[in-house]
Amino acid sequence: MKNSWTKTKFIMLMSVLTMFLAGCGENHLSTLKPAGEVGRQQFNLMVISIVIMILVIVVVTVAFSIAVFKSRRSQLGEDFKPKQVAGNHTLEVIWTSIPIVLLIILAIPTVYFTFQQGDTTEMVNAKGEANEDVTIINVTAHQYWWEFEYEHEGVVTSQDLVVPTGEKVFFNLKGADVKHSFWIPAAGGKLDTNVDGVNSFFLVFDDDKAQDADRLFYGKCAELCGPSHALMDFKVNALEKDDYEQWLADMKQIEEPIQADAGDAKEGQDIFNNSCIGCHAVTPTGAGAVGPNLTNFGDRELVAGILEHNKENLVDWIKDPESIKPGNKMTGKYQLNDEEIEKVAEYLMTLKVDEGTGDKSKLRESKDEEGGDK
C-alpha cells in the first residue's frame, strides 16, 4: 500500500512538472517568444484568453468557497434549508450576460486579427498578376520534406527556408501527397497545405528577434501525415534585406550544377549523375522534383532533418534511410555499394553556395532535433 502511494505521488509530481515545463521554450521555436507581427498578435490573443479564463476560475472558486464556508452544517444546523433561487430572473440575466460579455471581449480582437492576417491582396497587382514588389514563396509539402520556390526569382530550395526581415513575406501553400500543415512557431501561423487547393497567408520576421535567435527559426509540420510526421521540420534563416538579396543573387548565378574539383568528390558527382539525379535537382531551378533540391546541400543545418550535418551521418542516411526516417520515399531508390555511397556523400558536402548568411552555429550544435527529409 505504501509503495502504491509513493508511485502515485511521484506520478502526480511529474504531471505538475510537465505542465510547467510545457511552457518553456527557446527563441527559435517558442510561440511564447514571438518573433514577428503575426506571432505577437497571436500571442496577445492567447494572453487575453488566459486572463479571461483565470478571471472566471477565480470568481467561481471564490464564490464556491464562500458558499461552502457559510453553509457548514455545524454552523447552520441539520434542518437548515437554503433559499430557493430557481426562476430568479435577475440571477438568470446575470449569469447569462456575463459569459456573453466575455465571449464578445474575446471575439472582437480574434475576428479582427483573423481577417487582418488573412488579407493577402498585396500579393496581386492591378492586372491580377503576382506583385513583384513583395516577397512571395510557394511552399510544397511532401512526405517528409519541404520545397520552397521563390515566385519572382525562379529559385528553388528544400528544407532551409531563407526570408528577409522587416517586411511581409507571403506564402502560397499546397500539399504534394497528403494534408500537411505549415507552422513556424516563433513567427506565427499555422495553415494547412492541401492537395486540392492553395492556401495563402503572410508572416513578418523582426530583425532584432532574428538576431537573438542567431537568425535561425524552426518550422514544423503540424498535421499528422504519416509515420515520420514528427521528423518533418525545416529551418528558417531570417536575414537582413541586403543579405537576403545577396543570397538570392548567389543562387541565381548557379545555372549549371556545381562541379567537384577532383578525387572522391568528382567520382561521387559522376555516380550521382548516373543515379540520384533522377530524383534530386542540383540547380536552383529544379522545382517539382521527386526528391529535395540539393543545390546548396553543403550549407544545410541537418542531415535528414535530425542528424548533425556531417559526412558520416550523410553516409548512414543514404545507406539506410528507412532506419532513420520510416516511410520516406527515398528507401530502396538507389542501389549503391559502400564505396559509391562514400563518394556521393563527399560530393554532396561540397555543394555550398554561401557560407556567410547568418550565424548558424547554434542549431548545428544540437544533435537531438527533429526535422524533415534530406
Rank of each mutant, 00 (worst) to 15 (best):
T6K: 15
T6L: 15
K9T: 02
F10P: 03
I11T: 12
M12E: 12
L17K: 13
T18F: 08
F20R: 06
L21M: 14
C24N: 10
E26S: 07
E26D: 08
N27G: 08
H28I: 01
L29H: 15
S30G: 05
T31V: 11
K33I: 15
P34M: 10
F43W: 08
S49V: 09
V51R: 02
M53N: 01
V56D: 02
V56G: 00
V60E: 00
T61G: 00
T61M: 15
A63R: 14
I66S: 04
A67G: 06
V68R: 03
F69C: 05
F69K: 05
K70S: 14
R72E: 11
S74M: 02
P82H: 13
Q84W: 14
Q84R: 13
Q84K: 10
Q84P: 06
V85P: 01
L91W: 03
P99Y: 09
P99N: 09
V101T: 03
I105Q: 10
P109D: 03
F115L: 11
Q117N: 10
G118C: 05
T120G: 07
T121V: 12
M123D: 03
N125V: 08
N125M: 06
A126I: 11
I136H: 12
I136N: 14
A141P: 00
A141T: 08
Q143I: 12
E153N: 09
S158R: 03
S158P: 00
D160N: 09
L161H: 07
L161G: 04
T165Q: 02
E167F: 02
V169K: 10
K174G: 03
A176S: 10
D177Y: 10
S181P: 06
S181W: 01
I184L: 08
P185M: 07
A186L: 05
L191K: 15
N194H: 11
N199R: 12
S200R: 15
F202K: 10
F202Q: 07
L203Q: 00
V204A: 01
D207A: 11
K209T: 03
K209L: 09
D212S: 13
D214T: 12
L216S: 15
L216T: 15
Y218T: 11
C221H: 11
L224T: 14
G226E: 03
M232W: 07
V236Y: 13
E245R: 15
Q246M: 07
A249N: 13
M251W: 12
M251C: 01
E255V: 15
I258Y: 01
A260P: 05
D261L: 04
G263H: 05
A265V: 12
A265R: 06
K266H: 12
Q269K: 12
F272C: 05
S275H: 05
C276Y: 07
I277W: 09
C279W: 08
T283S: 06
T283E: 00
P284D: 10
P284F: 15
T285N: 05
G288A: 02
A289V: 04
V303N: 00
D316F: 14
E322D: 08
P326C: 02
P326V: 04
N328F: 05
T331W: 00
Y334D: 03
E339Q: 07
E339D: 09
I341H: 06
E342K: 14
Y347K: 08
L351E: 07
K352H: 01
V353R: 13
E355N: 13
T357R: 14
G358T: 12
K360C: 01
L363S: 15
S366A: 12
D368F: 07
E369V: 02
K374L: 07
